[in-house]
Design a protein around this nucleic acid. Structure first.
Lengths: 208, 208
DNA sequence: TAATCAATTTTGACACTGTCAAGATTGATT
DNA sequence: AATCAATCTTGACAGTGTCAAAATTGATTA
């Protein structure tokens, strides 16, 4: 009886489901998540989850949504350093953080940007909203980076934002999907990507 | 009887299965492919496919393998123009062809590089072989492009090959997975990506 | 306090899925 | 003509998502 008393029958079933589901996919992938197994894990019957999530798809959307929130906070914690770091260093920090998040939460990342939801399934309204918000934030920052000379100012901001994010995303996918297997190389490849993305700086980086 | 007579019971069942499977995933995605539906489509019983493919996974690998062959031929047809085109133009042609292939065969592309096989499943020996061969070809070409000054010669060829391909791949994925939806933009974004990947040329592109 | 209500949960059911074991068919080989 | 091995089918089992209807129960009203 260490638990708080449940207000209704199960109480915070939705929360519990979301939690258990995230853990289930964390080890074993999305394929390891079945509604029945999930229900069993939280001690409910097979169809109990359907009163908190319309669909299995809706459940996946909710997990993805959590991922966006989590990722967003991580990124916010970077932009705090805005004052102390140069634009280039800040960008590098962003990229590495982004990749690290994708690696450490690979299954959630797969849901956030994968076809399971966006192509095969139907993204929830709220999921669409938060993902748009996140891209908008990226877009705005790219505009700033253009002004700061890190990106080409000639090209439209949208195009730069799209293609540079795609580069980042592609890297994450190759590692997440097991195409690139050497996790050790991730940092090196990431740095090469950064050099590719960024306009050649006037001062050459001197590696002794 | 225009068909060749079947040597055994069903004759070229393997071929027929592979064909039907490719069509099934082409409209409806991988989720639309079930062994039973497939068997039904070619007029065989549920378990007949298991005498030609060890697994569902093995079947998917075979489809992916076909994809690599197809993609390889497409790319070969480009390198024929090697003499008539500049390095930059050749590279652009490659990128656009790559993306077009990924778009027109999105479900096959998903199998070729997606987690269904490489992470969740187990890639066949022969699939691993052909995919390695394809990347090797890319790697070799990147080395040439480095010599031709299109890529930075300072960085290791492997790193450039990895990160540039990741950029390409990421773009394809975003379109394939329905994250980027405006198919019309694909060419524009692709060109921005190319500009990003390639070392800034000495002669500026003059857009009047 | 007793009766009613609406939110929650469960049970039953259906049509699917991948795949294994065992038997049936059949072209080729002896 | 008899045997064999490859090929194919039937039966079966444990899963899956999800709908419809029944059961439970805290809160609300009379």
């Amino acid at each position: 009886m260490t638990d708080t008393k449940k207000p209704y029958h199960h109480g915070d079933l939705r929360e519990k489901l979301l939690n258990a589901a995230t853990h289930l996919i964390a080890d074993g992938g999305v394929d390891n998540l079945s509604i029945r197994k999930l229900a069993d894990k939280v001690g409910a019957s097979r169809t109990a989850p359907y009163h908190h999530f319309k669909d299995k798809n809706a459940l996946l959307c909710a997990i993805a949504e959590q991922g966006f929130i989590q990722q967003d906070q991580l990124i916010k914690s970077i932009s705090v350093q805005q004052e102390t770091l140069s634009a280039h260093a800040l960008f590098e920090s962003y990229v590495l953080t982004y990749i690290r998040f994708a690696n450490e939460n690979s299954e959630t990342y797969d849901l956030m940007y994968g076809r399971d939801i966006w192509k095969t399934g139907t993204p929830t309204e709220s999921l669409q909203a938060i993902s748009k918000r996140c891209f908008k934030r990226w877009l705005d920052w790219v505009a700033v980076l253009q002004e700061q000379g890190l990106f080409d100012s000639e090209q439209p901001t949208l195009r730069i934002a799209q293609s540079s994010w795609a580069a980042l995303h592609g890297l994450c996918r190759l590692f997440n999907d097991g195409v690139y297997i050497n996790q050790d190389d991730v940092d090196e490849i990431a740095k090469t990507t950064i050099e590719m993305l960024v306009k050649k700086p006037l001062s050459p980086t001197n590696t002794p």
